[in-house]
Design a binder for these strands. Structure first.
Length: 471
RNA sequence: GGCGCCGUACCCAAGCGGCUAAGGGAGUGGAUUGCAAAUCCAUCAUUCAGCGGUUCGAGUCCGCUCGGCGCCUCCA
């Protein structure tokens, strides 16, 4: 299976050609663990998970690397943007290290609930300070840096290709439009590699370096760690679309300058989840976490389904109505899968008839067309409705497709009715209701039904007698 | 000011110039039911913001207009 991906570098669909035959190196920008991740933050990890699964499905041996930004970039107390959670954590006397650990755990709990594979290599920025220092040294030796105001800067004028992917050369940027201009910079786009002179007081995390005690620049970690685990030239780098103009632009500059070769072949960027009134952010409100959805009674996997229903490069509008639709659809899909499981075994793709082979081929065409997951969901539903297929083939197809979609279809179980024992009082009520129905006393029978529902027992009348489900 | 994206049914959302415009949700009709719920079946855009152009052929390409969004600070 050939996989076509939209490469931000060049802005076109390209067939994936690995550097090393049969292998794929994948680096993904990870979370900054100084707050809970909101549901918009979870989109890249879900999309990257689908990408990884697709590459694996296509037969590649994938090495998936992700960083965790646990270096403290804490702002001072006067920062209005500071999250209440961080503030309260600090008030509770947690150190930045403890805060980082706390939110790292929270992050991986979320990704687990979304059935996102843990990357093969999760690297903490704080464990790779030496690699970052080495990289700055290399850049310094090669003449790409200067020191000013106590900080080491990358001199973008020494790197002619600067901003090529982002098309920055075509733009007339308004520098200082929203931030103070750093007077120490030679060029407006230069960025700090190593800080010894923080504009923030009380920097909690600092390390020794040839330039003095300080901490690394914000872009350095991805360059240093990706090269360590994937080499100076690797296949794919992913991240949010917002990273293109600054973070990834700077990563490319410092990596290629330091390594002296092309760094990344394919750049993949996901678009944002937006709320009705725009981007999800603390300031605009609508900061929802996965836990918020769970608290409202949704399954985290409903959110995965919701994400898969939109293409990763399109802005996706989050509404509760959409999430409801995703929940209903996912539950229905699970139920149908469970029904198939109950009556047959899956047919192995090797033994598919032509009709099933065609369905599978369609699915593969769609996923390999820049990960068209919405279309793939349609393929799943079409397979269920396709009467050219046997039940065993349908099940075989579902399980095969779910290797990429990750909806846990293999775990689908029929909801057991009458499974849980009822206490005798409820049992009596059910019997009483049956009696009332027999006597056509529907006022009474409906009242009992309502009462039971209020106690969490849903009655389902069927020809074989009443069944019940605990809700 | 500059750069970029988008506008498809009631909602979400696919659609790489060419068979009858995917799929899900909601709705509607029917089966079933004492009635509900659940389930099953069926149905649901002659039309893709508007206008103009290119083409044998356009939702898909080009131009303009209107409307929405993102970026140029950290941000997924």
């Amino acid at each position: 299976m050939k996989v076509k991906l939209f490469n931000s570098d060049g802005r076109e669909l390209q067939e994936f050609e690995p550097i090393e035959n049969g292998k794929a190196g994948l680096y993904c920008c990870g979370p900054t663990v100084y707050n809970y991740a909101h549901i918009g933050n979870m989109r890249p990890y879900t999309f990257e998970d689908v990408l990884r699964r697709t590459l694996e499905y296509a037969g590649y041996k994938v090495t998936h690397v992700m960083n965790v930004t646990d270096v403290g970039h804490l702002t001072d107390d006067g920062d209005e943007g500071e999250d209440k959670m961080i503030k309260s954590a600090r008030e509770q006397g947690m150190t930045v290290w403890e805060i980082a650990e706390f939110f790292t755990k929270a992050f991986f709990r979320d990704t687990e609930r979304l059935n996102i594979h843990v990357p093969h290599q999760v690297c903490l920025a704080t464990k790779h300070i030496q690699e970052m220092i080495d990289m700055v040294k290399t850049l310094e030796e090669k003449g790409y840096t200067y020191t000013s105001g106590g900080n080491v800067y990358f001199d973008t004028s020494k790197f002619p290709e600067y901003g090529k992917m982002a098309g920055l050369d075509k733009q007339e940027l308004q520098h200082g439009a929203r931030t103070d201009v750093d007077e120490n910079k030679k060029n407006a786009q230069d960025f700090v590699l190593w800080f010894t002179n923080s504009k923030f007081e009380n920097q909690a995390m600092t390390w020794e370096s040839p330039w003095g005690v300080g901490y690394p620049g914000w872009h350095l970690e991805c360059s240093a760690m990706s090269s360590k685990y994937l080499g100076p030239h690797f296949d794919i780098h992913c991240g949010g679309i917002d990273h293109v103009p600054v973070h990834h632009t700077n990563e490319i500059a410092q990596s290629e300058a330091a390594n002296g070769c092309k760094w990344v072949n394919y750049w993949l960027h996901n678009e944002f989840i937006i709320m009705k009134n725009g981007k999800m952010s603390k300031s605009k409100g609508g900061f929802l976490t996965l836990q918020d959805l769970v608290d409202k009674g949704y399954d985290a996997m409903d959110y995965r389904y919701f994400l898969l229903a939109g293409h990763y490069r399109s802005q996706l509008i989050f509404t509760w109505e959409s999430l409801d639709a995703a929940r209903t659809a996912r539950e229905g899909l699970l139920k149908k899968t469970a029904q198939l499981k109950a009556k047959c075994s899956p047919v192995d793709p090797e033994d598919f008839t032509d009709a099933a082979v065609r369905v599978r081929q369609d699915f593969q065409d769609h996923i390999s067309q820049d990960l068209n997951t919405p279309r793939c969901l349609a393929d799943i539903w079409s397979a269920l409705k396709n009467n050219e297929l046997t039940d065993g083939e349908k099940l075989g197809l579902l399980l095969d497709m779910d290797r990429i979609m990750g909806l846990k279809l293999a775990d689908a179980e029929l909801e057991e009715e009458n499974a849980e024992p009822l206490d005798s009082e409820i049992e009596q009520l059910i019997l009483k209701r049956q009696e009332a129905r027999k006597n056509r006393d529907f006022a009474l029978s409906d009242k009992i039904r309502d009462d039971l529902l209020a106690r969490g027992i849903q009655i389902i009348d069927s020809p074989d007698g009443p069944k019940w489900k605990k809700s």
